[in-house]
Design a protein around this nucleic acid. Structure first.
Lengths: 253, 253
DNA sequence: TTCGATTTGTTCGTATGTATT
DNA sequence: TAATACATACGAACAAATCGA
C-alpha cells in the first residue's frame, strides 16, 4: 500500500501523519468549530475529509482522549469535553474530606476587581507588563464551612465584560464558566504546594487562627498548546480536609 | 477473517483479547519472569506465543506503557521499568526547589526498627493485625540542608533480612532497593497532603521551629494489581522547596 | 418492540519507515 | 551492511452500543 500523505504535502514527513491530523483537529477546537459538549465528525467522515485511513484518525483521537480534550462513547460519537460535568470537575479539584465524606461544594464571590498586572502575573500569563487583569476573590465551602480561599487572576482582554453578577451567578464550575461564556477550554493545570501561615484576610474568612498552618497552592491553568489562562493562589484549611494526589489511577481509555 | 480467540478458550469473551494479553504479561512480570531493566520478548514473538496479531499485542503493551510499567524503545525493544533511572525517580519525587535549582538529593538513615503493626497500618497495608512491620526513619537533604523527614512502614514478611546496613548502603532510591533486592516493583502511589506543625523530632531534624508550618504527606505505594506495599509519612520544610503536581504534562507515548 | 443505520471498539493482516545493534 | 524491533499507515471485517423510524 502506498502512503498517501495528502496532508504533509509531499514534504519530508517531518512529523507523523497522525500528529498532523491531531494538530488540525486541535486547531478546529481552538477556532470553536465544534462547541464543548457537541460531537465532532465521525471517524469515517474525518478520514474521508483528511484523506487518511480511519486508523490514523483513531490514533490522533486516541491522544486527544488521553489528554481529556475529547471523550469517546461507543455507538454515540466523540464529544468535546465539558467542565460542568462532575467527572471533569473532580479531575482538577483535589480537596477531599479526611473522613471520606462527599459534600457538594458551594461557592461565594467575595470581590472582583480589575487592575494592572504585576510583573510576576504578567510573566506567568504571558502578558505585556501593565496589561489589565481581573482579580477575583472567592470562597469555597464544603459541608457548609469555608475551607478554601481562592485568589485568581485572568487577563481582562480574554474575559471581556466579566463582572461580579455573571461570575457569582454561574452554574457549575469556574472553568465551566470560562468554557461556556468565553470558549476557553482549560485542559491542564500545574500546581505548586507549600505549607504557610494564612494572611490576615484568609485567616478571617476561613475562620482559622493566624498561627495555624494552612496549605497554599499556586496554580497555573492552561488551554490548548500550553497557553496559560489563569493564575490562582488557594489557601486551604486542612483541619478536616486534604489534598489528594493520585499518581496514578490513570486507567487508560 | 475469523477471530481466533486462542486465549479466551472459547469462553464468554467477557473481556477484550488485548486485556487478557495485558493480564498475562502483567502476571509474568509479577512472577519475576522478566527482571527490571531486562527486555520482554519482542512484539512479534509475543504475538506468536499468544497466537494473536501483533496489533493486539501492541494495544496491550500500549496500556502497560501508559501505566509506566514498561518502556518502549524503537529499534531496541520493550523493557521493564527500573526505579534507579533518574526519570523514574523523579516520577514519584515531587519536591522541587522554589528557585528552580536542581540539587542532587542525599539521604541519611536515622533508624530502622521492627515492631508490630498498629491497626491503621495493618488495614492500609492489608496485613493481619499484629503482623510485624519495619519502621524506618530517614532524612533527605537537598543542597546539603535537611528538607524532608520520612517515616515509612513496610511488612517485614515482604522484606526479610532488611537491616540498617543494607538500607543505608543502597545505591539510588528506596524503590530501587525494593526492586533490586526484593523484586517488588512500585508502579503507583497515592498521596494525601495537608499543612501541619512538625512533631518535636521532625522539628529538630529539619531545623525548623515547632511553630512553623510544614507540609505533611501521607503516601501509600502500590505494586501490580493495586497491592499496597509501603506506608509513608513525610514532613517537608517548604521554606525554600515546594511540592509540584503537574496535571499534566502527560505527553502520550 | 423490532429493525436498521450509524458510530465507536476490537481484531486481524500487510507493508513500509526508522532506530538500534 | 544486514538483521531485529518498534513506529506508522493502510484496509477490512465484525462486535457492541446507541438511536430513531
Amino acid at each position: 500500500m502506498k502512503p498517501v500523505r495528502a496532508l504533509a504535502g509531499g514534504g519530508p514527513a517531518s512529523q507523523p501523519l497522525y500528529k498532523e491530523v491531531k494538530g488540525r483537529i486541535t486547531r478546529s477546537l481552538i477556532a470553536g468549530e465544534w462547541k464543548p459538549g457537541a460531537a465532532i465528525p465521525s471517524e469515517s467522515r474525518l478520514a474521508a475529509q483528511f484523506q487518511v485511513s480511519v486508523g490514523t484518525i483513531r490514533k490522533a483521537i486516541d491522544e486527544l482522549v488521553a489528554e481529556k480534550i475529547v471523550i469517546r462513547q461507543q455507538g454515540r460519537g466523540t464529544f468535546v469535553t465539558i467542565h460542568t460535568e462532575d467527572r471533569q470537575f473532580y479531575y482538577f479539584f483535589h480537596i477531599v474530606s479526611k473522613d471520606g465524606g462527599k459534600e457538594p461544594p458551594a461557592h461565594e464571590l467575595l470581590s472582583l476587581k480589575t487592575t494592572k498586572a504585576d510583573t510576576e502575573t504578567a510573566a506567568r500569563l504571558g502578558l505585556k507588563p501593565g496589561e489589565r487583569v481581573h482579580c477575583v476573590h472567592n470562597v469555597l465551602k464544603l459541608a457548609r464551612r469555608p475551607v478554601i480561599f481562592d485568589e485568581l487572576r485572568i487577563a481582562a482582554a480574554r474575559f471581556p465584560d466579566l463582572n461580579a453578577a455573571s461570575f457569582g451567578a454561574r452554574e457549575g464550575t469556574i472553568y465551566g464558566l470560562y468554557q461556556a461564556r468565553y470558549g476557553i477550554n482549560v485542559v491542564r493545570i500545574s500546581e505548586r504546594l507549600s505549607a504557610a501561615l494564612p494572611p490576615a484576610r484568609v485567616s478571617r474568612v476561613l475562620g482559622v487562627s493566624a498561627t495555624s498552618p494552612v496549605l497554599m497552592i499556586k496554580r497555573v491553568a492552561y488551554t490548548y498548546h500550553d497557553e496559560p489562562v489563569e493564575l490562582r493562589t488557594s489557601w486551604v484549611n486542612t483541619q478536616s480536609h486534604e489534598y489528594l494526589s493520585d499518581i496514578w489511577k490513570n486507567e487508560p481509555r
